[in-house]
């Protein structure tokens, strides 16, 4: 019952932040007028602002936040390591590389889902590399080192691809791809990201019982019918789908998948299945809050989301590294 209460509270928080996000913006609309324009839709300027500018922004924040929270919880459950997270391990960075290559080669214009699929390919390569380099027996240090290597390579290649672009604005967008932003996104981006995200959410949610069994040890999990290779394949595919789709439209946003499961773990007990559900809502709430904050702190500067998530996440990461060392979990 405690889980049900927690999920209700997190859902209410997400809904409240979603509403605040819809009411935040430079157009100077009163809440009543804004919501009336959103719901009734009379073809006025207000409706255009609400439906084409603010609604997609709030939707994407919720979708991408949920994806990152879910992916973080799943990776931590499978690797049984609290330091695992798509941003830190270079999965988001590699997805960004895939997206940048698709955009700069013109592949993204070839067919509708080319952009998210290219980002997904980047993410698959990264998760595959991480699992190959760190393995299941590898400790935290190996995992983090593998993440640093993948991140560095993906970041360098992203910068290279953008510097080689004939477009004079492309090179300045290195920071967008590495830090992420939801400024001026549209419903087109929502529809672009949604199919792969839904698929990824389903795949990651299907891991729940397997991850619970895994807490009892690999042998027990195997004997309960959860074949590890299949769990691993589902994790790779699910993570790549959600991170790829999110990064393709909003850039790489770090630390959400680290912070959210960490905060919620004490509240749900040690069961990864409960943590998955809670982290999805928690991630949505965190990214909605961050996206509201960037619009309030520096409304005209397009402050990147990754700046805020890193300011929250990096100190926590220090703490986790310190604790990991003290507990001798290397």
């Amino acid at each position: 019952m405690r889980l049900a209460l927690l999920l209700t509270l997190l859902a209410a928080l997400t809904a409240a932040l979603f509403l605040v996000s819809l009411l935040t913006g430079p157009a100077g609309l009163s809440p009543a007028r804004a919501l009336a324009a959103l719901i009734r839709g009379e073809g006025t300027a207000e409706t255009l602002v609400m439906r084409e500018i603010r609604l997609p922004r709030a939707l994407l924040a919720a979708m991408i936040g949920a994806s990152l929270g879910l992916a973080g919880a799943a990776m931590q459950g499978y690797l049984r390591n609290p330091l695992a997270e798509p941003g830190l391990l270079g999965v988001s960075g590699s997805a960004a590389l895939g997206a940048v290559i698709a955009l700069q080669t013109g592949l993204a214009a070839a067919f509708t889902l080319a952009l998210p699929l290219a980002a997904l390919t980047g993410a698959v390569v990264a998760v595959g590399l991480i699992l190959a380099l760190a393995g299941r027996q590898g400790g935290s240090i190996t995992l983090i080192l593998a993440g640093i290597a993948v991140s560095a390579m993906a970041g360098a290649l992203t910068a290279l691809a953008l510097n080689l672009s004939p477009n004079p604005f492309a090179a300045a967008e290195i920071v967008f791809w590495m830090m992420g932003s939801l400024a001026d996104r549209s419903m087109t981006h929502v529809w672009l990201a949604l199919p792969l995200m839904v698929l990824g959410w389903a795949l990651l949610a299907s891991l729940a019982r397997g991850l619970d069994a895994l807490t009892l040890g690999e042998d027990v999990a195997e004997s309960m019918g959860h074949a590890l290779p299949r769990l691993r394949l589902t994790l790779v595919a699910g993570t790549a789908c959600v991170v790829g789709a999110g990064t393709a439209v909003a850039g790489a946003i770090g630390f959400v998948g680290l912070v959210v499961p960490h905060i919620l773990r004490p509240l749900v007990g040690a069961r990864p299945s409960h943590l998955l559900a809670a982290s999805a809502f928690g991630g949505a709430a965190l990214l909605l809050a961050a996206d509201i904050a960037v619009r309030m702190i520096l409304p005209e500067r397009d402050l990147k989301l990754g700046v805020l998530t890193a300011l929250v996440g990096a100190p926590l990461f220090f703490h986790l590294i310190y604790r990991t060392r003290r507990e001798g979990l290397t």
Partner: peptide, 8 residues
């Protein structure tokens, strides 16, 4: 300009 950018 040729190429792609989020700015444009």
């Amino acid at each position: 300009y040729p190429g792609a950018s989020r700015a444009e």
